[in-house]
Design a protein around this nucleic acid. Sequence first.
DNA 1: TTGCGTTTTTGATATCGGTCAAGGTGGGGG
DNA 2: CCCCCACCTTGACCGATATCAAAAACGCAA
Lengths: 231, 231
Amino acid sequence: MSSCDTCVVRNRAICSGLDDAELVALNNIGRRRNVTAGEPLIWEDDDSLLVANVIEGVLKLTTSTEDGREQIVGVAYPSDFIGRPFGQTSSASVVALTDARVCVFSRNDFDRFARDHPELEHKLLERTLAELDRTRSWMMLLGRKNASEKIATFLLEMSDRLADSGCSAAFGPAKRFSLPFSRQQVADLLGLTIETVSRQFTKLKNDGVVELPSRREVEIVNRGALLALAG
Amino acid sequence: MSSCDTCVVRNRAICSGLDDAELVALNNIGRRRNVTAGEPLIWEDDDSLLVANVIEGVLKLTTSTEDGREQIVGVAYPSDFIGRPFGQTSSASVVALTDARVCVFSRNDFDRFARDHPELEHKLLERTLAELDRTRSWMMLLGRKNASEKIATFLLEMSDRLADSGCSAAFGPAKRFSLPFSRQQVADLLGLTIETVSRQFTKLKNDGVVELPSRREVEIVNRGALLALAG
DNA sequence: TTGCGTTTTTGATATCGGTCAAGGTGGGGG
DNA sequence: CCCCCACCTTGACCGATATCAAAAACGCAA
């Protein structure tokens, strides 16, 4: 096992509570793939390549209307599973936001492995339930929050999910971080236009709530104000 | 086994593909509860009452902001599971839209049962994944569709989910059906106000796309037009 | 460094849907 | 049978956000 694998396993074990031995076994039936920022993950590679495990990087799951409107319906971080096990087709397409490494499985391989490892399937269920919860609270945001509430909620979520090094949650929310999203992608995540996102960022900066050292960098100056705005 | 149980099992077996024997066994460790329309399902009944299986009726899952804005984040139909197995707390509250019968389980009972029946847990995973897919396509609606697209999508989804008798999907979409939602609830589902919902309904009626024989009744006159509007 | 293409910001204006307000409607209980 | 109350519809108006347009900032490569 390379040091890289060790890192992956450790990272996942810490972040997700998944069992080391099973993960190593799972790793062995998958194929590594590198994806560069902006590149889509093609599912129809061979017969049916349906499931993947994120090792490093951030990817977006999106759905689009025919006329080009896009909505980001999920974001996959290291240790997250993406795709749709057990035969059904997934409606979302997957694109890397940063350079990423993933471990991909054919539908058949993954299915068989999961059947043989109920404990893994149980973990997968727990994670899917957690993802469903996150998705539902995002529905609240999309349906009922206004632009400034959306931006504040987004920045708080980012500061919880991202940190300077690896496994953020253990060290509390990040005060300063680098967004994996362009302004347009933030808009697609929040159901806004790029112009509205830009104006809200500018307003938060002018109000002294955040600093924006560069386009992708954010520093939260007044977390209390953000929490109040997020509602 | 009473005729009622038979009905339940048959209904679920047809609709969801769940296995008869396991469902009967599961039924035996749960407690039946009747809920009248408008009544909430209280989770903290005894120690931790966290999971339920809908037998009959329709229920809504909602989240709310402190200032009273509400978003419906899910709708549970017969054979659906609601609640949050395996310890985590669910953020959504559950209220019956129609008179309903559910089968409730304590967290511990359900957890233990699921551990002993990997096949059931597998089914639960499949359903949770399907629910996640539905939820994600609803995010697209909330974030990127306008009022008339939302209403058209909603009516089509209702016609797919509801039919005059039991298990709709097998008989194709319903042309005429009875909404389990008030206008306000439709608004909470679509991220609109009640006034906007009302105006859009009126417009569809005036355009000859639907008939509205009464407040809760809908007849789809021109399904093609609805499909075009839904985008 | 300079130049160019892309992304972001800023400004002006339009519009969709929200808000406020005033009837209308229907169904259940007295 | 009628009344009342909750629910729904309609109208007038307003404001937040989208749209359209242009300038500015950034990043990369020559």
